[in-house]
Design a protein around this nucleic acid. Sequence first.
DNA 1: GCGTCATATCGCATATCGACGATAAACGAA
DNA 2: TTCGTTTATCGTCGATATGCGATATGACGC
Lengths: 103, 103
Amino acid sequence: MPPCTPPTPPPEGEAEANIELARLAKALSHPARVTILRALLRRDTCVMGSIVDLLPLAQSTVSQHLKQLKQAGLIRGEIDGPRVCYCVEPEAIERLKALIQAL
Amino acid sequence: MPPCTPPTPPPEGEAEANIELARLAKALSHPARVTILRALLRRDTCVMGSIVDLLPLAQSTVSQHLKQLKQAGLIRGEIDGPRVCYCVEPEAIERLKALIQAL
DNA sequence: GCGTCATATCGCATATCGACGATAAACGAA
DNA sequence: TTCGTTTATCGTCGATATGCGATATGACGC
């Protein structure tokens, strides 16, 4: 007999939390995106050009990664003259931390 | 001028941490895998058959997801008679929590 | 207007993911 | 040994991810 406790009913709203966590985790599932997020958190950079310099990737590829981070709600892009200034969404980061910590 | 601090050199060993975090995040990047991990953490189930019952997926698909969780080091499978008993690797979970919290 | 700079998007190639059914492999019981 | 139960693997498929160069878009200065 395997060492298992009797099956408990899955807590309320767990399915939604699982989907939300999976979405956020997916956004972090590529080293380049983790690198970008960390750089933005350090506030080293916020402009595309300098983010590209951090990575061995083409500008278009970096733009795609930024798009994914934006779609996951982890970052935001504000138009700043001819550039776009990216910054993190602190609430989303906190949400991610909370979901992971609750595991 | 965008509101950026002067560029700081990236901390020591950050690239490795980014890769490690991306690997762990990738393992959690699918709702089914989050569901499985949570069930194992609750110790509701540990055998394939009951895990399959939790999900609207075929047995072979669940086996694939378990394989990915195992390859990421988040779970372990112990042969228990004709069955396999899966359980979480607490150290890996703690590592994940630490990496996320350090963001 | 025109050109320039910075960024986003398009189009394409390749690789990986996620799903399934079918089958193989391992084990206990009869 | 043979059968049934349980899990892993294989082969295949469509969908998605990742990368690039080329091109479109948008904002500014002239």
